[in-house]
């Protein structure tokens, strides 16, 4: 530890947070949107994996990484639509459907993705913000994918949209009190289906980031549960898009800190490091939750908090 170069270490950690956190941004913003409408989609893991596969396959077949990203979003949209539609039927539990969808989505992705493990698809290119520097490490840390900036912009847009636009208010109304929304002439079921589909779209893009940029290849072990974690992340972020952004970066940093510490020679307890974000979320929830009181910011219609 004597030769621990703090500046390099923190730079690496920041870069890692952005690299690892970007898919979290998309998936959590998607889930945030869905949950704001009063639904929960636990199937995002399946959507993420399907998106990763579809994105990679289409990018390979079309030769364009961005077409792949769109295809990933489209796949997510369809699966989200499926979830939204089934959950709109009476007596159907959204958590259970989510878990069934997780199985179905991963199954489809693994089955259809078999032929795309070996070929090399074009990957998304990064913007070299650090090209001014002579240090390769700085250049690498600051070479950031466009999707990250899109994710950040999206967080701002959602933050503003949910607060200050007509559809944002409607969405929140549907999520908080479907009766009142119905009284005003809106159709909560359609709003929820749309919100779930949009959430699926974003989760699909999160998957495309994994397969087309970082780590940048399609295989069956690609996701390590980012889709499921996003659900926890949204609660951690109290259903606020801006906090989702920070939380995603925090989770990204937590994923990056284990390897970063080992690279400077601290290599004990790596399993515990890996579980740190989960324990942290749990601790924060434990401290901030109050009995007999729903979480502040929680949509009133959400099955999770009722």
């Amino acid at each position: 530890m004597a030769d621990l170069d703090l500046a390099t270490f923190f730079l690496a950690l920041l870069a890692g947070a952005i690299r690892v956190g970007t898919p979290f941004i998309f998936v959590s913003l998607g889930e945030c949107l869905t949950e704001k409408s009063g639904r929960i989609n636990l199937g995002l893991e399946g959507i993420l994996v399907s998106g990763a596969m579809a994105g990679y396959a289409v990018a390979y077949l079309s030769g364009s990484a961005w077409t792949g990203v769109l295809a990933a979003g489209g796949t997510g949209l369809l699966l989200g639509l499926l979830h939204g539609a089934i959950c709109s039927l009476p007596r159907v539990n959204d958590i259970a459907v989510g878990i069934a969808l997780m199985v179905l989505g991963t199954g489809l992705a693994f089955f259809l993705g078999k032929n795309f493990i070996q070929p090399q698809a074009p990957s998304l290119v990064a913007i070299g913000l650090g090209d001014w520097s002579d240090d390769e490490r700085v250049r690498s840390a600051l070479s950031i994918n466009v999707l990250f900036f899109i994710g950040v912009a999206l967080a701002f847009a959602l933050h503003w949209g949910l607060r200050s636009t007509r559809w944002g208010l409607m969405l929140r109304l549907v999520g908080d009190h479907a009766e009142s929304a119905r009284a005003l002439g809106y159709r909560p079921v359609l709003v929820r289906i749309a919100a779930t589909a949009a959430g699926g779209f974003l989760a699909g893009i999160g998957g495309a980031y994994l397969s087309l940029y970082y780590p940048g290849s399609w295989n069956e072990g690609l996701s390590s549960g980012q889709g499921i974690m996003a659900v926890a992340l949204v609660i951690f972020a109290r259903w606020q898009p801006m906090r989702c952004l920070w939380a995603a970066l925090l989770f990204g940093a937590a994923g990056a800190i284990g390897p970063a510490l080992q690279s400077v020679g601290i290599s004990t307890g790596y399993y515990l490091f890996a579980a740190a974000p989960y324990a942290l979320t749990l601790a924060v929830m434990f401290i901030t939750c109050r009995p007999n009181q729903t979480l502040s910011g929680a949509p009133g219609e959400l099955s999770l908090t009722r």
Binding site: D5, T8, L11, A12, A15, G16, R19, V20, R137, S140, A141, L210, Y214, P215, G216, S217, N219, G221, L222, S224, G255, A256, G258, P259, A260, Q262, S263, V264, G265, S267, Y270, Y271, A274
Partner: peptide, 24 residues
């Protein structure tokens, strides 16, 4: 310098480990 990822197939952690090593 050795980095243990903890399991046999963890693509993101492996990529992150590669980046950390190169940063060092």
């Amino acid at each position: 310098t050795v980095i243990f990822t903890g399991d046999w197939s963890l693509p993101i952690k492996e990529a992150e480990a590669a980046n950390s090593l190169i940063d060092q």
